[in-house]
Amino acid sequence: MIEGFTALYIFMLSAFTGYEVISRVPVILHTPLMSGSNFVHGIVLVGAMIVLGHAEGALELTIGFFAVALAAGNAVGGYVATIRMLEMFQSSNRSSQKKSGGDAVSDKGAE
């Protein structure tokens, strides 16, 4: 195990990092961000794999199987959902850039 205080340091620093990293997120990104952080804790898949990897006996294997299946669902579902939401912003961003470019031209024409 990662020993006592080292573990506490990791925990504390990670907690502050998480808090700081998203403290300036615009409201429009709250839902995609929640989905994204939902994807990030899909890392539980790694733990589920380790546990199933050294499971012994029917009970441990069964629980381990569910752990891996659920964790894989968390990771894949979280990723696809987040990507789908963010792709919409991307396309609307691109079209707005195009449009503002067009507006600039027409403004010049008006002058």
């Binding site: 195990m1 990662i2 573990a7 990791i10 925990f11 990670s14 907690a15 502050f16 990092t17 998480g18 808090y19 990293v21 998203i22 403290s23 709250h30 961000l33 929640m34 952080s37 939902n38 990030v40 804790h41 890392i43 539980v44 790694v46 733990g47 380790i50 546990v51």
Partner: peptide, 20 residues
């Protein structure tokens, strides 16, 4: 499980999720 990736990712989500 002594897995640093899980500790860090989990804690980051825990704190950012609380803020959110």
């Amino acid at each position: 499980l002594d897995n640093a990736a899980m500790i860090i990712a989990g804690t980051v989500v825990g704190s950012s999720g609380t803020l959110l």
